[in-house]
Write a protein that binds this DNA or RNA. Structure first.
Lengths: 335, 335
DNA sequence: AGACCGATGTAAATCGATTCAATTTGTGAC
DNA sequence: GTCACAAATTGAATCGATTTACATCGGTCT
């Protein structure tokens, strides 16, 4: 028994297919009585409309695509949650893609979304996809960039002032006595990492005698943090930093795992700070100092911007920059 | 400038639309030379195929839908990761839906997936959706249930022996001296919770004098754990448990937050165990005893089962039950 | 009574890619 | 040069829902 179609529903309800379509999409055009009959027929037959056909004829897909850097990172799940909630209220399904910081996967998802003719795209970019995104926009698919200010570009964005965040962390670490600071994160090309690093370097320059070293990692998860920490432990004592600034909390947790296991005391021997202020940072073995970003709020705001751009393609480009907030915890306070 | 279509590509390459389609979908049917010409034309025009039209005509959608209980729970992100990886290799996009343990949202996603005519569905169910899932299957959309053995049912499943998991935790807690055990989790209807609770109760019955109390929560996140812990702290000392078994790690972390903040010592005053063994459980302020489940492996296996069912709709129903493993940490060991 | 109206309902065209049956082109043997 | 046969290509039909332009009908106004 193949799936029933509008034709079948129409027949059963004693009306034409066009009326069934109207009942579904423009109920006000149909009388109460036939509306009821149509719905009854739909119920009885278990009719489910074919989205592909609908989309093809209607000419658009209400769904929105979101591409995140790491679906396992609470920062992004919160962000996605904020966006999803807002979009749901607008009746827009959210398609979630996880690039895992791999440029190829990012492109795969962009292709997928473009083929689906989604109504819009939210993306935290990895690779150099700006040209691609511009073309999407000129093809009528609005794009909002997350976590990266698109400069004077013609694409809207929602971001946090990462440079300031880096500055805040460095400032705090230095005030706690740090003089050799290691910044851990990567990949190197990732704008967030670059900006946080730059902010830290700027602050360091104001305090003579403070050195900043950058250690690149392939990803931004706990495993990367563990690897980097192992490397640090392998060094001679003189070359070891007295403060570690991990460019996100997962990395910081990884670093902490290794240090704790090796008997290195945080914060007595090494100060440690993270970024993102995910819930787990506050509840780690040693609660970790971090930078709070309003992730859910950002997701929601990004969804709003996108919705505006979808409704009015001529609406102006808008860049929203949220301010980061330093949250001080045990990992940077000798007690 | 509207988006180019096969027609435009065909014209540019000097062939018919049918040939363009063949070049894209059955390259072996087309000569090398025209294949190259078609691809060149596609490139030059920036053609992107319209998935809706393709799906409508081809009659199927290669994508697979996955509905999880909580996208913010690392257990599910790992599981989703395992499934995604396997499906990607098969060329099947994964559509991720997050029911947030809300029955309505679960239904919303099922509707969405059915309208999209996905090739198959993976689902960790919240509500009573079995009848619905059966209908889906009889409509030709195979379903694999995750985290819940579908019994002698006609739906395949991948699960962990939750009863045994509960038993293991209770056994360990009792061996550490627990006599008043509180099991925290919910919602009450959730099979995983019921089974873990039942396993714990069974073990308790074998030890006279051990009482088990169940505290239901609305969700299974850290906030729910905090709320439950507050409630416990509000009680008179006599009514307070000496061991808490949180039915997942997020809840356990929430409980731990409140206890630690209130100066209640874990494990000296209260033993605490979780479930799922997410990475953060091992690195909490007090590392938490938990039950390890092979989440990524389960996701991958579920994807395999689904793929089999898609390829051969007549393939037999299969239930895979993974075995849980107890991981003992500080939260249950006085030192 | 006739003209006109709004409210309902419908037949037929349409969205864009794929497929099927049929045709054209190419290859090699004789 | 012709024939048989395989390879390459194509025109037209098709997927299922929506839309457009038009028909129908009961009622209202003059």
């Amino acid at each position: 028994m193949a799936m029933p179609q509008v034709r079948d529903v129409a027949e059963r309800a004693g009306v034409s297919p066009a009326t069934v379509s109207n009942a579904l999409n423009h109920p006000q055009r149909v009388s109460e009585r036939t509306l009821a009959r149509v719905h009854a027929a739909i119920e009885e037959l278990g009719y489910v409309r074919n989205d592909a056909a609908r989309q093809l004829r209607a000419g658009f897909n209400p769904a929105v695509g979101l591409i995140v850097l790491d679906a396992a990172n609470p920062y992004f799940t919160d962000l996605a949650g904020g966006a999803e909630q807002h979009l749901m209220e607008l009746g827009r399904p959210l398609l979630l893609g996880n690039s895992s910081q791999v440029s190829d996967r990012e492109i795969t998802y962009l292709n997928l979304f473009e083929q689906q003719r989604v109504a819009g795209i939210l993306i935290a970019p990895v690779g150099n996809v700006l040209p691609r995104l511009r073309k999407l926009k000129s093809n009528g698919i609005p794009v909002v960039i997350i976590d990266r200010k698109a400069g004077a570009d013609e694409l809207s964005s929602v971001s946090v002032d990462d440079e300031r965040g880096g500055w805040l962390v460095a400032d705090h670490l230095i005030s706690q006595g740090a003089s050799r600071m290691a910044v851990i994160g990567g990949p190197e090309g990732l704008r967030q990492v670059r900006n946080r690093l730059r902010g830290a370097q700027q602050r360091a320059r104001q305090s003579p005698g403070v050195a900043v070293e950058y250690i690149a990692t392939g990803a931004m998860d706990a495993a990367a943090g563990r690897a980097a920490a192992e490397e640090l432990l392998g060094r001679s004592v003189k070359e070891q930093p007295d403060a570690v600034f991990a460019t996100n909390d997962l990395v910081a947790l990884g670093v902490l795992q290794v240090l704790a296991r090796s008997g290195v005391s945080v914060p007595d021997q090494v100060l440690l700070a993270g970024y993102d202020d995910i819930e787990f940072a506050a509840n780690a073995i040693i609660p970790i100092t971090s930078i709070r970003q309003p992730s859910a709020e950002m997701g929601q705001h990004a969804a709003q911007l996108l919705q505006r751009a979808i409704e009015d393609p001529a609406s102006p480009v808008q860049h929203t920059v949220f301010q980061p907030e330093l949250i001080i915890r045990e990992s940077t306070q000798a007690c």
